[in-house]
Amino acid sequence: MKLVGEKGVQRILMITALSAISSLLLIALFIFSEGLPFIFNYGVGNFLLANEWDPSTGHFGIFPMIMSSVWVTLGAMVVGAPLGIAGAIFLSEYASPIIMKIVKPTIELLAAIPSVVYGFIGVMVLAPIIRNNLGGPGLSLLAGCIILGIMILPTVISISIDSILAVPRSYREGSLALGATTWQTTHMVTIKAARSGIVASIILGLGRAIGETMAVIMVAGNSVNIPNSALDSVRTLTANIALEMSYATGMHREALFATGVILFIIIMILNSIASVAIRNRNAKK
């Protein structure tokens, strides 16, 4: 006696696949239904552009948080992107295949370290170094940028390597045959051909950086403040939600959901740009 036939298997697999999509839809629906009414009642401009966030007196302006998220993310890019791309070029063009086989999985292992561990290292090691050498409270925008820059390395490196290796051998051979050195070939031919993949890797890293919560809460200090310098403490959009959710009720809670809506929209835009960039790469091949 067979419990399920061919048709049954097909159906079960389809339901499983749909459950992933429907949970995404449900999450989106939930966030938007909780957050959107607040945004419109409070006023889009008041919510997005006002400087004051003080839930106890009914002020819900998230502009400082938006700016902080932008600065933290850009800073993480400044730290992470050059390191990541340089690492990817070295591993794919210069390193011997054995080194590549050892180093690439090791870097990918970085992605498996829980973010709370990065945060802990940031608090215990990085913040005191910044405080003692540069001043300020240590828990700062700079600490956030460095920690996030390291956290996005695996994303940037592994996608960049994949796109550099996807450049056909014939491109490189053609260039080398014309007398170009390895470096000339790399930066004038290979990198140019792999450009859209590298851009995609940076944008996915950006998405990871802007969405990171735990490590940022631990190292960035969380004051609601538009930063004047890299040593100022900042609070990102994600940190705002996570910090205050446990105590929030009424308007305050809705305002946090609305913060989630903004974050959701930003990440959707970034991911769409990345997937367009990846599609371009595939189309070129």
């Binding site: 005191p128 631990m218 969380n222 403490s233």
Partner: peptide, 20 residues
């Protein structure tokens, strides 16, 4: 004050003060 650090539990306040 605007630039006060914010921590979300008694324990993290203690750690921050112990470190700084």
């Amino acid at each position: 004050k605007k630039d006060a650090l914010i921590q979300d539990s008694n324990g993290t306040i203690r750690e921050t003060v112990a470190n700084d």
